[in-house]
Design a binder for these strands. Structure first.
Ligand code: SF4
Ligand code: SF4
Lengths: 162, 162
DNA sequence: CGAATTACGGATACATAATGTCCCTATTCG
DNA sequence: CGAATAGGGACATTATGTATCCGTAATTCG
C-alpha cells in the first residue's frame, strides 16, 4: 500500500499556490517546470484538485491555478483525498460469509470488529492530515528555508504567474 | 491506495488461531476452507506471518500454524506490517531537488516539512493499530457473536486442528 | 520403512491499477 | 485573429496485486 506520486505532486503545487499573491494564477507548465515533472500527467493531478473544488482556474494565456480557499482553510487531507480518493484503505471482502458454520446471510448484520478496528486506524490517519493546513506549512517552510532560496523561488514564480 | 486483501485474510486467520487451545496447530487447508479462499495463495500470506516470526509452524500431517506469542502481545500492526510491509505509505521522490532556483544538493539537507507531516499521519495510523491486540479482538467478538455460531465454528476448527 | 500430508519457495500466468503520452476542444487574453 | 490555457478522452507502458502450479524437505502415522 503506497500513495500515488501524484499526492506528493499535488501537495507541492498547493504549497506553491498558497504563497501566491491574491488574484494571481500559475499555469501547469510553470508548476511542471518548477518541479521537473511531466506536464501532461501533472495536469491530471491538478484537474483532480479542480474537480474537488480546492483550486480555481482560468483559461487563456496568463491562465492557470490559484487556491479556491484561504490557505488556513485548506488541509492536507483535502488535497490527499482529492487525488487519492476518499475511500477507505481497508476494503472488506466479506470473507466471513464463507464460513461453513454460519447460517446464510449472517454477515449482513454489519461490519465485524476487524473491519471496524481497521477503519478506526484509517480515521486516525485522516484526522492527523485534517489538522494540518497550508497556512501551517507556510510557517514551517518560512522558518526552514534560507531567505535567498525562498525569495529566488518567489521571483521565479511571480515572473511566470498570470 | 488500498491494502491488499491478504491483510484481511491474515487478520482473520490470526483471529482464529488466537482462539486455538495451547499446543494445537491449524493447517492452511483448514483456514482456506473456513474462509472460502484459494489455498495456495493464502499460503503466501501465512508464510509472511511465519517469516515475521508471528506464528510457529510444524510440518507433516497434523501440522500447520499456531501463534508464536500470546494473543495479548500480538497487535494488529504486527500482522498488517508482516503482510503489507513496514515501509511508509508516503514515499518521497525528492522532486524538490528539481527546483531550478535552488543550488545543487540542497535537498540532501533532509526530508522537508511536507514529507514529515505525511509521515506523522502515517505514524498515527500505525499507533492506532499498535494499540489493539488479538486479545482485545477476542473479547469484542465474544460479545458480538451468537453463542451457537461461536461454538459451532470452534467445533469445526478443533475437528481439523492437529 | 513407506505413504500421506504438511510448510516453504520458485516459476509463471493473469488482472488491475498506476504512470505517462498524445491529441482534440472550448475558452480567454492580447 | 492567433497564441496560450484548462479539460478530457484515448491510448501505451509499467508496476503491483492476485492466483496457480510444481518441486523439495520435514513430519506423522500405519
Ligand atoms: S465484515 Fe469483518 S468478518 Fe466480514 S469480511 Fe469484513 S472484515 Fe471479515
Ligand atoms: S523531501 Fe519534501 S520537498 Fe523534497 S521531494 Fe520529499 S516531500 Fe518534496
Amino acid at each position: 500500500m503506497i500513495l500515488k506520486s501524484q499526492v506528493e505532486w499535488a501537495l507541492h503545487c498547493c504549497a506553491i499556490l498558497s504563497g501566491l499573491p491574491e488574484g494571481r494564477y500559475l499555469s501547469t507548465k510553470a508548476l511542471a517546470e518548477l518541479h521537473g515533472l511531466p506536464k501532461e500527467y501533472l495536469s491530471k493531478a491538478l484537474q483532480s484538485l479542480s474537480q474537488a473544488g480546492l483550486v480555481h482556474t482560468t483559461l487563456g494565456p496568463s491562465g492557470g491555478y490559484r487556491l479556491a480557499k484561504a490557505a488556513n482553510e485548506l488541509s492536507f487531507l483535502d488535497v490527499v483525498e482529492a487525488v487519492e480518493g476518499s475511500g477507505r484503505t481497508f476494503v472488506c471482502q466479506n470473507i466471513r460469509a464463507n464460513n461453513p458454520c454460519r447460517p446464510k446471510g449472517y454477515c449482513e448484520s454489519g461490519p465485524c470488529a476487524i473491519a471496524r478496528i481497521m477503519w478506526e486506524a484509517d480515521e486516525a490517519w485522516r484526522a492527523a492530515l485534517r489538522k494540518v493546513t497550508f497556512a501551517d506549512l507556510g510557517k514551517i517552510l518560512h522558518q526552514e528555508i534560507s531567505p535567498e532560496i525562498w525569495s529566488g523561488t518567489f521571483d521565479w514564480v511571480l515572473k511566470r504567474a498570470g
